[in-house]
């Protein structure tokens, strides 16, 4: 393991321990202790419909500004030939408008947004379009290669990663308090591992 990778990993771990540090999608979680039951005020209140748009173009009108509630502007974006994850300027612009129209004002506390809900392949694809090539910059805290409004970015982060647990290293069951059997081999193996450093 390269020293750079080692230190980068430690920095990433250190950041997640700081609950207020927003440094990337994974940093967003709906965990406020005084979180209310309230849904979102809505940037528009309805999700985009259909997939019939012309690739990468904002097909439908973009009506009033975000947050108005009621009738929502509808954007219909189409997956580019290179796939949702590959940046394509027109698709990116269309997707930004679509997410802005569909997402609630406070996606983290909304019950109507997140974890790919409501089901909408276009919105999922759009968030992949908005996020994928921005990941490294998000996590490193540097300027985004494809800048996007903070609200749209947060909405996609919550939708894609607001909470999740995909992991080959999924957490084991926590121990019970009476799980106190001595395991003497641990000390030796642990010390052995340290010695490698």
């Amino acid at each position: 393991m390269q020293a750079g990778a080692f230190e980068a990993a430690l920095r990433a771990a250190a950041k997640v321990t700081l609950g207020t540090a927003l440094f990337g999608c994974g940093a967003i979680a709906r965990v406020s202790p005084d979180e209310t039951e309230a849904g979102a005020g809505g940037r528009g209140g309805a999700e985009p419909t259909g997939l019939g748009g012309v690739g990468g173009t904002a097909e439908a009108s973009v009506g009033g500004a975000s947050g108005a509630g009621g009738e929502a502007p509808v954007e219909s974006c189409q997956e580019p030939a290179s796939g949702w994850a590959a940046y394509e300027p027109a698709t990116f612009a269309c997707c930004t408008a679509a997410v802005d129209a569909a997402a609630p004002a406070d996606p983290e506390s909304s019950r109507e947004w997140g974890f790919h809900t409501p089901e909408d392949p276009m919105l999922d694809g759009c968030c992949a379009q908005i996020l994928t090539e921005n990941y490294d910059a998000l996590w490193s805290g540097s300027a985004l290669p494809h800048p996007v409004d903070d609200g749209v970015l947060a909405a996609c982060c919550v939708r894609a990663h607001g909470n999740a647990g995909c992991t080959p290293w999924g957490p084991p069951c926590p121990p019970a308090m009476d799980d106190l059997e001595p395991v003497p081999w641990i000390a030796g193996r642990g010390d052995s591992a340290r010695g490698v450093a």
């Binding site: 393991m1 390269q2 750079g4 990778a5 980068a8 990993a9 990433a12 771990a13 997640v16 321990t17 700081l18 609950g19 990337g24 999608c25 994974g26 940093a27 967003i28 979680a29 965990v31 406020s32 994850a85 994928t132 990941y135 894609a160 990663h161 607001g162 909470n163 999740a164 647990g165 995909c166 992991t167 080959p168 290293w169 957490p171």
Partner: peptide, 28 residues
Amino acid sequence: EEMPEGPLRELLTQIWADEIGHARFGWT
């Protein structure tokens, strides 16, 4: 960090993002 660009790195990136959200859930 040590993986080259490619589909597997993209997959691991998604996994990592999820892990970050998980850990932060607990810490917060």
